[in-house]
Design a protein around this nucleic acid. Sequence first.
DNA 1: TTGTATGCGTTATCAA
DNA 2: TTGATAACGCATACAA
Lengths: 351, 351
Amino acid sequence: MVATVHQVAEVAGVSTSTVSRAFGRPELLNPQTREAVLSAATRLGYTPNRAARGLVTGRTGNLGMVVPDIANPFFPPLVKGATDRASMADLGVFLASSDLDAERELQAVQRMVKQVDGLVLCSTQLDDATVRRLAETTRLVLVNRTIRGIDSVVIDFAGGMRAAVDHLHALGHTSFVYLSGPNGSWSNEQRRQALRAQARKRGLHVSTLGPYLPTYESGVQAADQVLARGASAVIAYDDQMALGVLTRLHERGARVPDDVSVVGCDDVLPVGVARPSLTTVAGPCREVGRMAVELLLAGEAGAGPGGQLGVTSRRTEDRIATEVRQPTQLVVRASTGLAREVVGVGKLSGK
Amino acid sequence: MVATVHQVAEVAGVSTSTVSRAFGRPELLNPQTREAVLSAATRLGYTPNRAARGLVTGRTGNLGMVVPDIANPFFPPLVKGATDRASMADLGVFLASSDLDAERELQAVQRMVKQVDGLVLCSTQLDDATVRRLAETTRLVLVNRTIRGIDSVVIDFAGGMRAAVDHLHALGHTSFVYLSGPNGSWSNEQRRQALRAQARKRGLHVSTLGPYLPTYESGVQAADQVLARGASAVIAYDDQMALGVLTRLHERGARVPDDVSVVGCDDVLPVGVARPSLTTVAGPCREVGRMAVELLLAGEAGAGPGGQLGVTSRRTEDRIATEVRQPTQLVVRASTGLAREVVGVGKLSGK
DNA sequence: TTGTATGCGTTATCAA
DNA sequence: TTGATAACGCATACAA
């Protein structure tokens, strides 16, 4: 049996409203009565029932967070940043992993929307209209996706991708292959388009392979395609795929970076320990999770923050959305090197 | 404005109880009225408020899960298994990451205990007494920790660790170093004791270094200690540390496995891509998360499952606890090899 | 088969 | 400074 306001009230010899106030507005209470209530509460092990409280106040003290796949190493740091920030504000966090399925994601959202004060949707699979409708019901922050009028915080992998193209260009590569992530992924589009634009600018030729699921196995599979095309460089949608590529290239006898240069993206795995260590694009995932919750909190309070680096506020529909953009950077390690042509090595034979 | 039973009732021209029944006990309703209610509900976008429902039924439709650190790659698969199983049962999941801090963990538990039907505590930092007290308030399943009388599911790393010792023994090693995980960690004790017992049995000498935080950086740090001791083999508390060891040994010019053999534990990272690829002990993390929720569900229904492999039921205090034990296995890769003595290589000089 | 009335645990309003 | 009361959204016992 768990204690309620009633038991505490009885033990402390006060009314239930007084018990309630002892927790919610202690300053309104006579110090003596407050102490009496609090000690009675401690004795009975009483804690306010947040669900019941939420029913009357309209605030639940919970947040919701949805990610496509918590087993994808990109997301745990993000979740960590969010839960850490949330627990500082004494907020609970609902987590759902949608398995890259829009319907499952919608179910998860429905399940928690009435029990939370706000939602963080990471790389959401939902279409714009659904998200917009959702935003009318609850506070919403998007991560790695933007929709006009909705608050968001995105990791600007475009910047890192441009740096990656410049890096390959400087090494003498004249073309490269991009291993595409899942279809319909906003992040994939962001990366792919940045890549193509920069490649055009530098006069490089790009060809795209995929779509692939962002896994180690996909990378293994893709590596053979890369060899078949005789590509001198490959940029993968993420590190998991890049590691798979590395492994398979090694098996096939192709040397990295002498025969093929490989670039990953995310830098969340200990990719420095791969041999050769992986050149990749790194972003502040943890910080992004933290920031998403920050935005949620700021939105609840009323005015947005503004003033931080990369924060844009623009009026759309009839509200002002805050868009935070976090920079990325290219981390050059050992998996990228001079192009074959430059060092005079011909195409791999026996593909 | 979100819809409630009242709005739906009004639109459908029925009472609120009828609306309630349309969702909770559809079979009690005249098919026509049920359809009318459901269509009205759809039109208004109505979904039952689970918090309010929980207040009257006593069942919230939510579970809680606490892990020490969601950014530690050991836990995401576990969380994935749990959330997947939970969403099959249409349950929401609260997640908290305690940062290896007992107090923070307790706060997180307090925060959610009234809003959930059960709790999964992974590698909990709480002491036995606190956990027992908690178990009187709510359904509880422990992961990777056992307490008499409390349901649990543990990954039996002891088995894998014994296999690791036998493996080193077979390769001619006569002693090894164990890199210890965090103090007070149940998992660390499980691994360490299994190691020591098996080493004694095989006549190997073990020395322990640590405690260390289970991170890549700790491994880097520990590697120098390992070299200073002239050890021919090292078993690390987890893969992150083992990868750190690998990196630092390489920097120091020690060859793996020719000079030093390295064994990790968990097999959750793509450790096969490390060079040399890492010998490690693998356990069914995903399955364990799934099973923990299964146990919670079974406990709610009444009788426990029983019958599965490794399930023990024992009576303690005045209830019967179910303890599921999942086996592990040694995955031999390239980081372990014949001991130096066997191949005639002396101690490393210039340590 | 459906409606009425009540209570779940809490807080807000109002009166004292 | 404190207490009585109503209401939050819902499910159930009971009556019809």
